[in-house]
Design a protein around this nucleic acid. Structure first.
Lengths: 184, 184
DNA sequence: TATAAATCAGACCGTTCTGTATGAATTTTT
DNA sequence: AAAAATTCATACAGAACGGTCTGATTTATA
């Protein structure tokens, strides 16, 4: 198997399960079954590995959400599908919160390399909500502009992920889902 | 000045500004103007200092929010007051996100000592929203139980704090505020 | 088969970390 | 003033960290 992929996969799993700072280079190479010198040939620093992890997760999360949404036609059902998909994750055994918000908690905001990827993913989510609302005729949300409503849904979504991790329970997704539908 | 308080104040500032892991014991004692031995006489470990910090912030945040709410009478205005107070914080120079969610991002969920305090603060917030809605006659929120609505407001709130940190901007508070009012 | 590229194991470096030990100096209490 | 408690400065222990280097060994290319 590709050495680079072995490293990235192992690092991704460990970064997500136990956090970035808590994961040492030595553990990564050991569990990946790879020499330390090999790791530093593919990634010139631990931070480079972190960036690769975040980019990897960006592609994965956004494409999954877009796929879930594409199975529905009505805006309301697309929104519901997103929260149901989230519920699937928060209920699964391997759930440890949002990959991006977790890193945001460990890395200082001054680190633009890291935060640019984090914001890119969040912007992707917001854009998805905005597109769903845009391609919709119902309601015409007079009290709130479409942008602001999309951001409201996004905040419920991210608040729910974070809360699920803190509480070790998925009731926040249920509450967020209900509130989201009420906002439409 | 009281040595213990000097230590706790300095640690609180540093933990909030640069994070828990990024703050070393040596920096704390240096900036507090205190000997290392003194620190370990008041706090038997760094984790004990973290707990003290969280408990300290718990008292402070909850009492501040309760005070802000107490200046209004109508539920809608109480809710608005909370988000306006949040906006005050997110716009201030020293804002670095939520003290509790920041720590949650650094400490593994298995650490119950830490997470119990974090959940205590979140429960305090949820209870505050629930009380506000309970003491209110308007609407009778038939679609959503009072509990679930309170949690919706809480999720908007926490989502906004987290997002403000990630974006380095306070637009999320505005969006959350608008959505919160729409939920009422 | 010969050459080049990739991966290997692991010693090693310098730094940083939390936490302990010591014994003197200072402050508070009696 | 004497006794007790606190705080002082600092050296040290022990471990973990990210990262570099070496030189052998395997794998792929020509």
């Amino acid at each position: 198997m590709d050495t680079r992929k072995k490293i990235l996969d192992t690092a991704s799993r460990l970064f997500y399960q136990q956090g970035y700072n808590a994961t040492g280079i030595n553990q990564i190479i050991e569990e990946a079954g790879v020499a330390k010198a090999s790791l530093y040939e593919h990634f010139k620093s631990k931070e480079d590995l972190l960036i690769a992890y975040l980019e990897f997760m960006f592609e994965q999360t956004i494409s999954r959400f877009r796929h879930v949404v594409s199975t529905k036609v009505e805006a309301k059902e697309k929104i519901s599908a997103i929260f149901e998909f989230l519920s699937l994750n928060t209920n699964s055994k391997g759930f440890h919160g949002c990959q991006f918000l977790n890193i945001a908690g460990e890395i200082p905001v001054e680190n633009l390399r890291v935060y640019d990827v984090i914001r890119k993913q969040k912007n992707g989510l917001r854009a998805l909500f905005a597109e769903i609302l845009k391609s919709d005729s119902m309601g015409d949300h007079e009290l709130q502009s479409g942008e602001s409503l999309a951001d409201g849904l996004y905040l419920l979504f991210d608040g729910a992920i974070m809360s699920c991790k803190v509480y070790g329970d998925s009731w926040p997704v249920v509450a967020a889902h209900k509130s989201a539908l009420k906002l439409l």
